[in-house]
Computed example of a mutant assay.
Amino acid sequence: MAQGYTAANLNAFVDRSLKNLEMERLDLVQLHCPPTEVYYQPEVFDAMDRMVAAGKISSYGVSVEKVEEGLKAIEYPGVKSVQIIYNIFRQRPARFIQEARDRGVAVIVRVPLASGLLTGKMTRETTFAANDHRLFNRNGEAFDKGETFAGVPYDVALEAVDEIRSLVPQNATMAQFALRWILMNDGVTTVIPGAKNAAQAKANAEASELPPLTDSAMEVLRALYLQKIAPFVHQQW
C-alpha cells in the first residue's frame, strides 16, 4: 500500500481532525491527490467506508490530478466527491464530469483560473515572490506541474489569454467569464477560486449570475484549446 494510506493512518488522521476541530463527525473528508496506485487498492476505500459506518465522517472523496484517476475513483460507491482541475486551459475533464454527474458524484473544480492566468491581469513582466509556486514550479520542480498555470507554458498561455479578451462581455471581468465557462458544464457542483480580498470573493460569486456563454463563444474557446493548448496538456492529465 502506498506510504501513508493504511487504515491505521487514515483513522489516526480523522481522529486528530475530530479532536482539533472539536467535532463529533466530519462532513466531508477528501484524500488529496493520492498516488495513482492508491486508486487500485480497495482496502483504502474500505477503510474510509468503515469510518462512514462508524459515524466519524458523513462522506468522503478524493482530489485527483488525472482524469483516469477520477474515473477509477468513482468506481467505488463510497466516493461522493471528486475535486479536479478544470478550466478553459484544461478541458479534458469535461466528459469525466458528465460521467460523475450521471453517477451522482459531486465535482469540485479547483484551479479554475489557471493560477491567475485567466484573470487577464498577468503579463510577461509580471513577477512572483520566491515562495510562489508560479515562479518555482513551472516545470514540476516541487509537485505536479499541472497545478501551476494548469501545466500550460507561460508564454503560450499569455498569447491565448489575449485571444480570449475579445470574447469577454462588457459587464464582466475575464475571471468571471472564465468561471462562467466552467459553470456551463452542468456536472460541476461547485468551483473554488482563490481570492485575495472580500471584493474578489464577491466578484467570483457573481460569475454565476452572468448569462450563459453563447454557442459561438464556446466554439471559439474549444478551437483555441485544441489548436494552442491541448498539445501541451491534454494527454498528461
Rank of each mutant, 00 (worst) to 15 (best):
Asn137Trp: 07
Glu37Gln: 13
Val156Lys: 05
Ala172Ile: 10
Ile164Lys: 04
Arg138Thr: 02
Ala8Met: 09
Gly151Ser: 10
Thr123Ser: 15
Gln170Met: 13
Arg95Asp: 09
Val67Ser: 05
Phe45Cys: 02
Leu117Cys: 00
Phe136Tyr: 15
Val79Cys: 04
Phe13Val: 08
Glu37Lys: 13
Leu10Asp: 05
Ser166Arg: 15
Lys80Arg: 12
Leu179Phe: 05
Ile182Lys: 09
Met184Cys: 08
Met184Ala: 13
His234Phe: 13
Lys121Met: 08
Ser17Cys: 11
Val64Lys: 02
Asn9Leu: 12
Glu219Met: 07
Asp132Pro: 00
Phe96Lys: 01
Ala207Asp: 03
Val111Phe: 03
Phe96His: 09
Glu141Pro: 00
Glu147Val: 14
Asn20Asp: 14
Ala129Ser: 08
Arg222Lys: 12
Asp15Ser: 13
Leu158His: 07
Thr6Lys: 00
Arg50His: 07
Pro193Ser: 06
Asn9Pro: 07
Pro93His: 08
Val152Asp: 06
Tyr40Gly: 06
Gly194Val: 08
Gln227Trp: 14
Gly4Ile: 06
Ile57Glu: 03
Gly187Gln: 05
Asp186Thr: 12
Ser17Tyr: 07
Met1Asn: 13
Arg134Ile: 12
Leu226Asn: 14
Ala199Met: 14
Leu18Tyr: 08
Phe89Met: 06
Ala73Asn: 04
Leu179Ala: 05
Leu221Ile: 11
Val38Ala: 12
Ile85Glu: 06
Arg92Met: 05
Gln176Ile: 11
Asn20Ala: 15
Phe143Pro: 02
Val79Ser: 04
Asp215Tyr: 07
Thr36Glu: 11
Ala150Gly: 11
Gln83Ala: 02
Tyr5Gln: 04
Leu113Asn: 05
Ile182Glu: 01
Ser216Lys: 12
Glu37Ile: 13
Leu135Ser: 10
Asp155Cys: 05
Gln98Phe: 02
Glu147Gly: 00
Lys145Thr: 10
Gly116Phe: 00
Lys196Pro: 02
Cys33Met: 14
Leu113Met: 07
Val29Trp: 08
Leu28Asn: 03
Phe143Ala: 08
Phe13Asp: 04
Arg16Ala: 08
Gln200Tyr: 07
Ala54Asn: 01
Glu209Asn: 15
Val188Gly: 06
Val107Pro: 05
Thr148Asn: 02
Arg50Thr: 09
Gln30Ala: 03
Trp181Pro: 05
Leu117His: 01
Leu213Thr: 00
Ala207Ser: 11
Ile108His: 10
Val105Ser: 04
Asp102Pro: 01
Arg222Pro: 04
Pro231Arg: 08
Asn171Glu: 15
Glu147Asn: 13
Ile57Leu: 13
Gly151Tyr: 03
Tyr225Pro: 00
Leu226Tyr: 11
Ala175Leu: 07
Arg95Lys: 10
Gly187Arg: 05
Arg25Trp: 15
Ala106Asn: 06
Cys33Ile: 12
Gly104Thr: 00
Phe13Tyr: 10
Asp155Tyr: 01
Glu43Gln: 15
Lys196Trp: 09
Ser17Thr: 11
Ser59Gly: 13
Ala205Gly: 10
Arg110Pro: 02
Tyr86Gln: 06
Val105Ile: 11
Ile229Ser: 00
